[in-house]
């Protein structure tokens, strides 16, 4: 199974350990993983700022890097979603369409493609799960509180098989953390207030870690936690699933 590894640009730069964990995890499950070296950014920051029209270059580069892989896996629901919804190419429409079909967020790939029901990992800590909106509401990685539907969560199902891990839910289980790309700076006050609500609920649960499938949400929460000197660490799901 030939997998192209798509690492969000800010993960490459600031959270390489998340990318390493994703790579090792996929390798452990028998995938042949390649990281195309000329990948840059999916173009989401521009598109969400209203400049999707300028993302053509990013699209072209993405297609050049990721054509030909059976699967493309990304440890971020948000970036995977952007490709799934907005990767287009006037010159290579078929290549773009193929990539849109083949892109997977990591937990989705583990659950739906590799069809693993559990992982061999151990993480004996109290952990809170941060549900990222793009993964949940657009990629349907879990049920949402707004809808009358059968409850499910791909991330929780995987975490429930991790040895020693004690998972805590917050009362507003799927409220947005307020990162929102450029929103976190253009609407700084609201963004921070939203993040603080998430943190308050995790603090009430007494967790030591907040995990999630999107490093961008976690980066925002980490920034707040560190500034307020709160002893909760953020850790990407891939890092937990990759513990031995």
């Amino acid at each position: 199974m030939k997998v192209g590894l798509f690492i969000p640009c800010y993960v490459d730069q600031f959270y390489p350990q998340v990318a390493v964990a994703t790579l090792e995890l996929l390798e452990r499950y028998g995938c042949e993983v390649h990281y195309p070296l000329k990948q840059t950014c999916c173009g989401q920051p521009m598109a969400n700022s209203g400049f999707a029209s300028m993302a053509g270059g990013c699209d072209k580069n993405f297609i050049a890097n990721f054509s030909g892989y059976e699967y493309i896996v990304c440890p971020s629901g948000s970036c995977a979603l952007h490709i799934k919804e907005h990767l287009h190419s006037a010159e290579e429409p078929n290549a773009a369409a193929t990539i849109r079909e083949r892109i997977y967020e990591l937990t989705e790939f583990i659950t739906d493609v590799l069809k693993l029901e559990g992982v061999k990992a151990s993480f004996p800590h109290k952990v809170g799960l941060h549900v990222s909106c793009h993964g949940q509401r657009m990629l349907h990685l879990s049920s949402m509180s707004e809808k009358v539907e059968k409850p499910f969560s791909k991330a929780e199902a995987l975490l429930s098989t991790v040895d020693g891990l004690e998972l805590f839910r917050t009362s507003r289980a799927d409220e947005c953390c307020g990162f929102g790309g450029t929103f976190c700076v253009t609407e700084e006050a609201v963004s921070v207030s939203m993040g603080n609500t998430r943190i308050k609920e995790h603090l009430a649960n007494g967790v030591h870690y907040i995990t999630g499938g999107d490093m961008s949400c976690l980066m925002h929460l980490e920034g707040l936690l560190k500034r307020q000197k709160i002893d909760i660490k953020v850790i990407h799901l891939a890092e937990i699933l990759n513990t031995q």
Partner: peptide
Amino acid sequence: KQRDMPSAPKESFK
């Protein structure tokens, strides 16, 4: 203003 920057790792994933 209210958040710390992520700390720069010694090398990128690349």
